[in-house]
Design a protein around this nucleic acid. Structure first.
Lengths: 344, 344
DNA sequence: TTGAAAGCGTTACCAA
DNA sequence: TTGGTAACGCTTTCAA
């Protein structure tokens, strides 16, 4: 059953039927009801391909996931974010087009999405300090929203959490608890959010006049191995850190393992504050069951960010001329068993 | 630049240009080359929407990910599988349509994909013993391939690993190492693969005449918490298990934690064999750095399965009348530090 | 080997 | 408020 058949059956023109079904105002209420009833009875659904051709819109949003070998979709942030965004797309009648490509193919993927107009907009995740994707998408005139931001976050739409502030507060808390030898296990500092976190840490330390030991600051892809190796080395030296500020729960699990191997109990002998609990389902609601530290990026907050970013993107698509949308989200700080006063 | 403009510029008909570009045989080689050169020079790309309307194909594959609250895309198996499949789709000119819906909305998602023909086929992951999706998709006449299989794996296309055999071999190995008190921490046994694994375990035990302690067999969603809680309880009792056979590395991490809390060293006091190392990047190449047990479902094998499933699906779409494709993959067994002889 | 023209099923413009 | 009709840009059938 297509539009022509339905309109013939009703004795109306295709135009009128189309208008009735699409909520155009200029159709009388009586015919609208009649048309809607007939459509329902006939189980009519408009052909999406024809509609896309006619409107020139593809009713799809593109997500391009770079496969760096380490991060990719397995990155639970990506997954939770997409979950949130996907729900909004579905509700608004948009499809989610997922493109997983090697790191070096990302730009081509966007280019292709633009040239064959297979999407109406794209989402950008995990931006670097100066991310080439931004300029490319502006150049391609493809509407986009960034989860996170770059060093120069002007002229485009983004949503980010206040990373610097979050790490400042976490550092303050550790200092309040008497810790002085604090180690920062950060993510790759080519990523914008990692640098902001580091700045927050350094600012808080400086504000109290506590010197930062450069050997205590590390930056790498946030694997468990990284946490285990780095913490192992640090804990084996004299004047080892009494606290760790860790950027990802995966890495924190490695830290916890290193501590356990040395007979150190978290929350007593060493303290851990972890930025996210996005793997809570995996790591037992934090890094120390059952009340681990959950700080900043809970799973539900990541999902909420995905939802909001999707809404922003759809709004942008509906009205491309509007100014960029930018939102900065504050975070909560909640602590569990892994964090305690500095041992004397 | 569209087809009409290109054809006018060339002084040819749209028909000929279309044929030349799409590799139809009835066009002379001379004109084909001329057309291709002109298309390239003009940077012409066919409008995908128009092509889809004309051909009636959507050139897209659907993946529906149920959000059960626990598993979802975060499930690294899903992510790695999609990565592999996505690469094949891209190479063959297909889009990947991702639909993440609550568990109860899965069937509607498929129905919708079928009625508005937004995809040419769908992929099915993690089937239950008797999975309703199979009958539904057959009913909707939507081509599909299943990663895994059901209890009655006939009449549809699937690709699976030999789960029973894998667990039989792992159990044999533990028995050879002198273990008698072996615990199986399985996934949810409503999932087909979990039941096959259990059968493999039980068969191996029975073949040696070693009684299975029912209290040593557990089945649940494969979280870290599950591994930690269950192993904690088991290790605290008399005649605790000396070995654990675990269905997922996430759960194995919990087991390792429980062991560590009791001063037990894996590979010496207790042994762990884990089914997959899909989180290897996260758990340090296995559950005990650096040479953990990697057994069966390596990340790359999951990705390869995704690739093969995608190829099967595209073949099915090209030729819907062909008989179902079915592949059973054998697995390797490799061990690391977590596995050792039974303590005397 | 090439071309004209009829779809594909909508939406949207312009008249009535 | 309704209808006729021209897009939308391609593929495909039928003729030449």
């Amino acid at each position: 059953m297509n539009l022509r058949q339905l309109s013939e059956q009703l004795g109306l023109s295709q135009t009128t039927v189309s208008r009735a079904l699409n909520g155009y105002p200029e159709v009388s209420e009586a015919t609208r009801l009649r048309v809607q009833a007939a459509a329902k009875a006939a189980n009519y659904t408009p052909n999406s391909r024809a509609r896309k051709l006619a409107t020139g819109r593809s009713m799809a949003i593109g997500h391009v996931i770079p496969l760096s070998g380490k991060e990719e979709l397995v990155n639970p942030i990506f997954a939770d974010f997409i979950t949130g965004a996907g729900g909004v797309y579905a509700r608004e009648g948009y499809d989610l087009l997922l493109s997983m490509v090697p790191l070096e193919g990302v730009e081509d993927a966007y280019r292709q999405m633009a040239t064959n107009a297979s999407v109406d907009g794209v989402m950008v995740q995990a931006p670097k300090l100066d991310d080439p994707r931004i300029a490319l998408l502006q150049d391609l005139e493809l509407p986009f929203v960034v989860h996170g931001r770059t060093a120069e976050p002007a002229g485009y739409s983004w949503l980010d959490v206040a990373n610097a502030r979050a790490f400042r507060r976490a550092t303050d808390l550790l200092l309040d608890l008497g810790h002085r030898r604090i180690s920062l296990l950060n993510g790759q500092e080519t990523l914008d959010f990692a640098l902001r976190r580091r700045r927050g840490f350094e600012e808080a330390m400086a504000a109290r006049g506590v010197p930062v030991n450069p050997a205590f600051m590390h930056s790498a892809a946030m694997t468990e191995q990284y946490g285990h190796r780095t913490a192992s080395a640090l804990l084996d030296q004299d004047d080892a850190p009494t606290a760790f500020l860790v950027s990802s729960i995966i890495t924190a699990i490695g830290v916890r393992r290193a501590a356990g191997e040395r007979g150190l109990r978290t929350g007593r002998d060493i303290s851990i504050i972890c930025h996210d609990d996005v793997l809570s389902y995996m790591a037992n609601d934090g890094i120390n069951a059952p009340e681990g530290p959950a700080f900043t990026a809970t799973r539900s907050s990541i999902r909420a960010a995905g939802e909001r970013c999707a809404e922003m993107l759809l709004a942008l698509i509906d009205n491309p001329s509007q100014p960029p949308l930018q939102e900065l989200w504050e975070t909560d700080l909640s602590l569990g068993r892994s964090t305690g006063p500095a041992p004397s």
